[in-house]
Amino acid sequence: MNLTLKVWRQNGPDDKGHMEIYPVKDINPDMSFLEMMDVLNEELISEGKDPIAFDHDCREGICGMCSMFINGEPHGPERRTTTCQLHMRSFKDGDTIVVEPWRSAAFPVIKDLAVDRAAFDRIQQAGGYVSVNTSGNTIDANAIPVPKQNADKAFNAATCIGCGACVAACKNSSAMLFVSAKVSQYALLPQGKVEAKERVRKMVNQMDLEGFGNCTNTGACEAECPVGISLENIARMNREYLSASLSSAE
């Protein structure tokens, strides 16, 4: 396959950035998208040019580090697929592929396609945990039965890989899907209920402070989420926050 890549180049956070065109030749359709980028980078290095910086790590779709906005969609055209699991057979010979970083005020560009997602960490630090010490002297694991249905729902919410595709897809750069997944996981489990109200207030507050936009319920986040986190979680968070706001003394 021969392709034309249009890639966002930005030499550091303060650079204005621009799109640059690169032809890539002899691409094997069995390559992953990132392997294609590797090939391009090898070529750039051999030509004495600066390779394209991008984030990636596990390359099996679970670490959440890869983050490319490909042909107008986060992680590219395939559903339920991270960039690292996207293969070149999803494209046609002769295609032009546009590659950009996640764009959001809360995710400043570090270089080229790599962005800083520390905002997500800070939201989690605001309350994404159960306040229990790690002594191991907790009660026996089976002393707290959890209805299978809730356990499964909590698990589904907990599978969020924190990649930020939801923010990238949302026309408002809203982080609601990400935040609601964590809020839901704990709200559904008895262990997390105790501090549920406090948690949702703190996490939403942090989310707002980070400069994410608002949720318009377009559903783009759910459609683009590589692990299929459901909008149901956003509704649950709306509920949790409403009840927390109504019941709080503030």
Binding site: N71, G72, V98, R103, A105, K171, N172, G219, A220, A223
Partner: peptide, 19 residues
């Protein structure tokens, strides 16, 4: 607020694919 949340726009978007 939503506009402010994305100061640099995408070069190319395909929103009809997801919403």
């Amino acid at each position: 607020q939503n506009r402010k949340a994305r100061p640099v726009k995408y070069h190319y978007e395909n929103p009809s694919a997801n919403s």
